[in-house]
Design a protein around this nucleic acid. Sequence first.
DNA 1: TTATAAATTAGACAGTGTTCAATTAGACGC
DNA 2: GCGTCTAATTGAACACTGTCTAATTTATAA
Lengths: 172, 172
Amino acid sequence: MAEHGFVRFSAREVAKQIGYSVGTLYNVFGTYDRLVLAINTETFRLWTRHLQDRLAEANRDRIRALVEGYFSFARSNRNLWMAIYDHRLPPGMPIPEEFLPDRSKLTNIVIDEVAAALPEARREQAPRLARSLIATVHGHCTFTLDGTFELMGVKEPEELALARVRDSLAAA
Amino acid sequence: MAEHGFVRFSAREVAKQIGYSVGTLYNVFGTYDRLVLAINTETFRLWTRHLQDRLAEANRDRIRALVEGYFSFARSNRNLWMAIYDHRLPPGMPIPEEFLPDRSKLTNIVIDEVAAALPEARREQAPRLARSLIATVHGHCTFTLDGTFELMGVKEPEELALARVRDSLAAA
DNA sequence: TTATAAATTAGACAGTGTTCAATTAGACGC
DNA sequence: GCGTCTAATTGAACACTGTCTAATTTATAA
């Protein structure tokens, strides 16, 4: 997935490279979607660790560390990161529960930091605001990696994302 | 594309339904990517008209009309809208120039409205801010349609998007 | 060594995008 | 109507995909 990206990823090629047949891969993962789900969940784990590391070595400006961590992971793991959002489950199939814990950790980290950045009187807004800010940064990050911002002539997109986050934190 | 969505879309199926052979489709569009590009560019045209209509019948709050127009088009044209962002060109292949004009119109509409919403002294910031706000709304819209917000338990995502946009307009 | 369980395989199936030599249809001048 | 030339269209072949399953191999336990 990291080498060839989501579009060119194939279960058969995986089987070839690990020295097993396709059948084995399907016995273990059940279906193509669950194989991709497993890979993408591992990416979530890597991403979470990346963010925690950035926070650990951050100075006072932990919000900047979060935004930059979001971007730097996506940039240096382009194919893996995009695969998370390129993958669509068949309609009606929810994400199996086993994958959920590792995928929600990231959100909780952001919620904690947003809560800490808010004045105490506004702190109960943190969960909803944090999720909105994740969407905000996500939009900027997507447009950076998929070429939309380049087409628009936008430079330094992470500064832009950080500015939007600061706007909303200040407003709260 | 509208019926089955990006994942299940196939050139062969298109050929079957329009009563031509696959070969003809390839003679006309050259490649699968250019066929999808043509469809998605048409979606951009529909989207642009939708936004213009919403603006035409808007009251004073044209910013709200923009955000709601963005969401309502995506919601009522789920498969078509998602196909725009699910489609990835092969690395190194830029979007052919013929498709660019219809795709940039949307951005320009937003830039004009953002400029109008800013005080005259800040108006030169409009293009860059508008593109950032598009990314903001886009992130919220993506998370709405791909199920991320549902997984997070976020209700009324468009109100959230509008709030973020207002935060940044107020800050400017 | 044997009986049982688990792991692994290869092949078949119905799809996909892509290419291209061969065929058909259409337009034009006579 | 006929012949010519060009443009449009075809369908078969190629190498690939995910998915399934009967058959086989390997490992474990008695």
